[in-house]
Design a protein around this nucleic acid. Structure first.
Lengths: 345, 345
DNA sequence: TTTCAACACGAAATCGATTTCGAGGGGTTT
DNA sequence: AAACCCCTCGAAATCGATTTCGTGTTGAAA
């Protein structure tokens, strides 16, 4: 690594002191026009850029924020990253991304790595395993150190900090309502186990929609998936044993598995069964049929989280109280709920 | 931000010097057992962790690598990130991710931001606009500064550095060969314009496969997409005017658009037309029919790139010559090429 | 008793930048 | 001519850690 140009070298070269160089480059009035121009010309010529690390040490802030996510090969989190990155860059910050791969241990390690001066604050979405364990000491620790933290999507209610979430429950309710409005009466839900906060909330929304319409809640129509990897067979099995006219799936994977299962039964989506999905990604947009879905506005969530975090970092508003921002979901209706046989109610 | 515990504070608290504390914590033999234990106990009690920034400044290395990508809402790049992240973390490094959004200017800005001490080296995949412009001065600059750089996937031949690519051309050739073996004789290709390096290479592979089998190359069957956003209509139009029995698409988006167009013509994939895609993602795995595709092994590419970069960083092997690693693609055959009518040759 | 080595620790330099404070020189005021 | 001020610049502290070198003490060897 070739050593980069430093203030000291410029000083030696031009036979002035380091402080003079620093001041000249920052247009301090202490420095005469003559000297200033000479130094600035030299710096420009050799393309001097101050060393970020030295600045970080001096200023006690790194102009970098950390983003800790459970996974990345997932359109939703990818869009969150885009949102965070855009806002952060616009405001002059870098983004340090760490993946927990849904592992508690990796999440702890990541927080520790970052919390030692590398960053000015965190944005994180909690790992699945962490939610399962319910162990949040690592979060409490960094927060008690005074590190600003914003949680996104998969949040922890017990931890007090800024949060950006979507109205999971309302979004689910609206989606199911849509199914009902389109004539469905026997609606199954394919969801996650309850310790996943968003899964639980979406299940609640499903239940609310049914009750709002005086439809009976049949426990038998609720499928809670524990093992996402092998969910496809489980879903196929589930649907083969039940006669439903509508399916609400809490993510794209479950939705596509459901469609596939229905089709392999010789039935059709949307002619025989309507399917509503959650989380809008490439998959929903390009599937055949295209999937109706609840749009989570991931980029917007990321952008909002970044703004919240940077506001807290820059204004040092430690005493200001924490807020939970809810980004509204919206329904995107596509082919999978365009029923041609059942008339809309 | 509450000030974190520093060596100086420990020193003051225990009434020893800063150097003694530092040495004690690093188990230096200069320090007596007594003092060492006292200091280590204190540090442990108050959970002392050295400040990363100070270490970076002192050591002249940040234990962080930069990863500059054109986009992220794209399974391939997401898997590359996973691979990089895993290796980097395993070897004790953080990953700073920047997105260029395929913009030349943003790429330049990102490089400049990172090149000032924030990181020890780069991994990057060149932005589309940069390839179009052919302006690589920003790359040359950071490299001439002695910053180690590894390029991934979308590489620039003119720049001399380590590279990790796939055998785009061979992968495409193999895919097209597979189509031919499955009985296709009129094979269209849906590809990108030539300034995208990988698009051009895949087109070459397509041509080679045709020639290898003494099939005539019909320019009319080659569709080069410039505007990816509105590619769907272009593809539908293209296919409606041509009678083909096989389609090779250089990415998942083009492939799904093609399938959709074929189906809306009242024909079937794979019964009437076989479709082979490139880049294996959720979409290919979950589409109906599931898509045969050329697997790019993104995680492997990312991992390899990270290993190359870290080796260069840690061994300071500036003089060692640069290598281009080719990660072999592999064909994944799924439903979209399981022809039931045309017998395999 | 003198000398010397081993031991345990501290002072200071260093990484690269910023910033406070002080000082020298030139000119102006009384 | 004495007093003063302003302009311009440099020395040094600082951020938090590491590391070299030096120093004082103790004990043992000569």
């Amino acid at each position: 690594m070739k050593p980069k140009l430093t203030l000291k070298q410029i000083a030696r070269e031009l036979d002035v002191s380091v402080s003079t160089v620093s001041k000249a480059l920052r247009d301090s009035p202490e420095i005469s026009d003559d000297t200033r121009q000479k130094i600035q010309a030299f710096a420009k010529l050799y393309n001097y850029k101050p060393n970020n690390i030295a600045l970080s040490l001096k200023n006690r802030r790194t102009k970098t924020i950390g983003l800790v996510l459970p996974e990345i090969v997932h359109d939703f989190f990818a869009t969150v990253i885009s949102g965070v990155e855009e806002v952060a860059n616009k405001r002059g910050y870098n983004v340090l991304i760490c993946l927990s791969n849904n592992s508690f241990d990796r999440e702890v390690i990541n927080l520790e790595m970052l919390a030692n001066g590398s960053i000015d604050g965190f944005i994180l979405s909690v790992a699945k395993e962490t939610q399962q364990k319910g162990d949040y000491h690592h979060l409490e620790e960094v927060i008690s150190q005074g590190m600003p933290v914003v949680m996104v999507d998969r949040v922890v209610n017990d931890i007090i900090c800024d949060k950006v979430i979507i109205d999971d429950s309302d979004g689910a309710r609206d989606a199911v309502q849509q199914l009902i409005d389109n004539g469905c009466r026997k609606i199954a839900i394919i969801t996650t186990v309850d310790y996943i906060s968003v899964g639980k909330l979406r299940t609640e929304g499903y239940l609310r929609a049914l009750r709002n319409n005086d439809l009976e809640v049949e426990e038998d129509l609720i499928l809670k998936i524990e093992d996402v990897e092998n969910s496809h067979e489980e879903i196929a099995q589930f649907l083969s044993e039940r006669e439903v006219d509508g399916i609400f799936a809490v993510n794209e994977q479950f939705a596509t598995s459901a469609v596939k299962a229905i089709i392999s039964q010789g039935r059709s989506v949307p002619d025989d069964v309507l399917v509503f999905s959650f989380s809008d990604g490439e998959l929903s947009r390009r599937f055949i049929p295209t999937l109706s879905t609840v749009n989570q506005h991931g980029a917007e969530m990321g952008a909002k989280a970044a703004d919240l975090l940077l506001d807290r970092i820059e204004n040092d508003t430690t005493e200001e109280k924490f807020q939970t921002t809810i980004v509204k979901t919206s329904l995107i209706e596509r082919e999978s709920t365009q029923n041609r046989k059942m008339p809309a109610v």
